[in-house]
Design a protein around this nucleic acid. Structure first.
Lengths: 245, 245
DNA sequence: CAGTGGTCTAGACCACTTC
DNA sequence: AAGTGGTCTAGACCACTGC
């Protein structure tokens, strides 16, 4: 006769709640990329839990590459502005095994109305504008990558071709230092396509040549999509690598 | 005047040693894929450490997908023979988002002398033979994947085209149940290539069409390379997905 | 109900970094 | 020497599964 109990508000362990609070602080920019967060003991006092519980929360955030632990020094907010992390999301590498040194050339940087597809992927509100960037990356003087990049015009207000050309180094370090936007993860979809006339021109190869098409959506804290890339790789002298676990 | 201390035998935490021992048991097939390993308490008694230490060792093995924890039931050796894991290494999916149901057709299964490249990748001894398999995978009647597969002829002794054709389901489940070989991880290198006459025939598309070339080396316990794949995907209606973290 | 993994605590001690 | 993260322990209790 009794009313069956509703499915209990699903159990959430303490360390998950701590994790959420740390995430909130990251998202609120309370601790900035490259800086250290409070020690485990301090956080334990702040959240009124034991050090072990804070530890487990940080462990998971470190496993997700949001934080970086350094024994003896502290725990740091992950940043793309460090040598080891500069090309964390770059999966292309030369067949020869040598080190990649890519040279950037930006062709365009324009504000425009997004296509419906771009607007949807970036979760824009109706009327929001976007910035489209075209760039070519070269290795040893040969153009290897041609890509179009879309960004929200409000988040990246004032971005110009000149600012891009003045920057040396990876895009994601640029976003971080100039627009307080740290990239946390990305999703890629890959296809093979034949080069059309325009691509053939940009990449200096014959029309019809097979190219790797890589579509990427990159996210910042809170799973917010912030950047779209539509890239074509010349894979004659290099390849895309992937680990399956 | 004293001799400087040699770099101390690098510190190895207890849980790492436990992890190594568990790994050894997996490699020795003491516990088989799909079966449960002893409880944490039992293992703690066996290795004379606390439950927490065993726990940390198992945590890492679970993170590497070698073990699977199931609350209330136990900890199990990962297996490819389970629905959820059937296509753990398949990164291709239809653009439409619908479920992939691939149909296998094996064209060949022959024993031969390996090329030097294959021998090297599989770390074969001089004189060891290999088995080469050709297969086509189709979706909705359309051929999507053509691939050549190389296996060590000693590990996969007696493998024939008939046995392959009698098997329904994923290759890795086949290896596991018929040859006691569980795949742990794989490395892929991806390029875009133009279809030649032979590929165009197999995949029913025009010569020159861009295809995804996926080269894979798959490993079993102890980082032992066991299988090589050289696959071409038609990506006109499907794409390769990847997560960057 | 017993047995499993999962959480949380408190405390001791170790390894690494910096001063 | 002090402060940080890293390891290890012992014990209590919770959540889930299956008998």
């Amino acid at each position: 006769m009794s009313i069956p109990a509703l499915p209990a508000a699903s159990f959430s362990p303490l360390y998950q709640q701590i994790k959420t609070m740390i995430l909130a602080s990251l998202q609120a920019a309370e601790w900035l990329p490259g800086t250290s967060i409070p020690s485990e003991i301090d956080l334990a006092a702040r959240y009124l839990v034991s050090q072990g519980t804070v530890r487990k929360a940080i462990d998971e955030l470190a496993a997700e590459n949001l934080l970086v632990r350094r024994q003896g020094k502290g725990t740091f907010v992950a940043t793309h502005q460090e040598d080891a992390w500069q090309y964390r999301f770059l999966r292309l590498e030369p067949d020869s095994g040598e080190k990649f040194q890519l040279f950037n050339r930006f062709l365009a940087c324009e504000q425009l109305k997004p296509s419906s597809q771009v607007a949807e992927l970036l979760k824009l509100k109706a009327g929001d504008a976007v910035i489209r960037i075209d760039r070519i990356q070269s290795f040893k003087g040969k153009p290897i990558v041609f890509e179009e990049i879309w960004l929200s015009a409000t988040r990246f207000k004032g971005l110009t071709l000149d600012k891009l050309n003045a920057w040396l180094g990876p895009m994601y370090a640029f976003y971080e230092s100039q627009y307080a936007t740290h990239m946390v993860r990305a999703e890629e979809q890959i296809k093979a396509v034949n080069a059309d006339q325009e691509l053939a021109g940009h990449l200096e190869l014959p029309v019809g040549q097979a190219l790797l098409l890589v579509d990427r959506v990159a996210f910042t804290y809170g799973n917010k999509p912030v950047e779209i890339r539509h890239a074509r790789y010349n894979t004659s002298q290099q390849h895309y690598v992937n680990q399956l676990n």
